[in-house]
Design a binder for these strands. Structure first.
Length: 272
DNA sequence: AGTGCGGCCTGTCCGC
DNA sequence: TGCGGACAGGCCGCAC
């Protein structure tokens, strides 16, 4: 399940192979993704040169001079760079071929992901219009988060997973960051004081940066573009560790469902 | 406007 | 061994 660190890992991995390359061919085998792939994607992309690979939240953005292609990996998606034409396997939905003979292959069994065409990249895609700050940017500040949190009654975990508040914090890293900050996942957002908000921001940033350094988290199906797993799963403190001892205090890690999402926490390290 | 929940998907796992 | 059902969860879109 790719979250921001996984997507960042993928962006860094594919950039050397696609930046500066011209698209020669596009094959769409399955256009029924989260949103239908735009008609005639091949004609739109053909002969475009990819100038830059960027990321916004969990979207990979391939920018050409005037337009952009946005790729979201959903839950189960990945992209890989292939050197030669390998026969496509099940769920290999889209190929983008470049003039350096490399091929970017989009694979997504659950089809929760998306490939979006943006004609004019001077403004952001409408799907990103409501996006809040990047968690690793200065815009994700104590004053921003505190101002948002004090008006909201929802659980703090729900708040930090809201893309309008901050992008790219998914279920795994939300649990991990709250553990690190010593904050209970179900604390009402409005009850957090400035010290806790500060600690939470630091924890989110620390957790995401460490995960990027480790090449992302591999639980079931995340592989980087070389097909290698990430190693952050070895650094998880609470996620998936139900009934196992907390590394800090040895209490049993607990979990429950919060709005349909598995939520893990340490009952003694996360008091308020 | 905030909140909560259903739906989209398929692979995997569990119990019968 | 087969089969149904639960689960995984990002994110939208709807209802209240």
């Amino acid at each position: 399940m790719p979250e921001l660190p996984e997507v960042e890992t993928v962006c860094r991995g594919i950039a050397p192979f696609v930046e500066g390359q011209k698209i020669t061919r596009v094959i769409v085998r399955e256009s029924r993704l989260r949103w239908p792939v735009v008609d005639n994607l091949e004609n739109k992309l053909k002969n475009l040169k990819i100038l830059q690979v960027a990321r916004r939240g969990k979207y990979i953005i391939l920018n050409s001079q005037k337009s952009a292609l946005l790729i979201h990996l959903g839950m189960s998606g990945h992209v890989r760079i292939l050197s030669k034409q390998e026969s496509p396997k099940k769920h290999d939905h889209i190929d983008i071929c470049f003039d350096n003979k490399k091929l970017l292959r989009y694979h997504d069994p659950r089809r929760f992901g998306a490939v979006l065409w943006q004609e004019d990249n001077r403004q952001q895609h409408f799907r990103l219009a409501h996006y809040g700050p990047e968690p690793l940017s200065r815009d994700f500040s104590v004053s921003w988060l505190h101002a948002k949190a004090r008006k909201r009654q929802c659980a703090i975990k729900t708040l930090i997973m809201d893309n309008k508040i901050v992008v790219g914090v998914g279920n795994i890293y939300a649990s991990e960051a709250l553990f690190r900050a010593g904050i209970k996942p179900d604390s009402p957002a409005s009850t957090l004081n400035e010290i806790q908000i500060t600690r939470l921001i630091q924890s989110i940033q620390y957790t995401l940066k460490l995960a990027i350094k480790r090449g992302g988290t591999t639980l079931k199906d995340f592989l980087d573009m070389n097909g290698n797993p990430g190693y952050f799963s070895q650094s998880l403190n609470v996620y998936g560790r139900v009934n196992q001892p907390c590394y800090t205090c040895h209490s049993k890690i607990k979990h429950y469902k919060m709005q349909g999402r598995a939520t893990y926490y340490c009952p003694s390290c996360q008091k308020r």
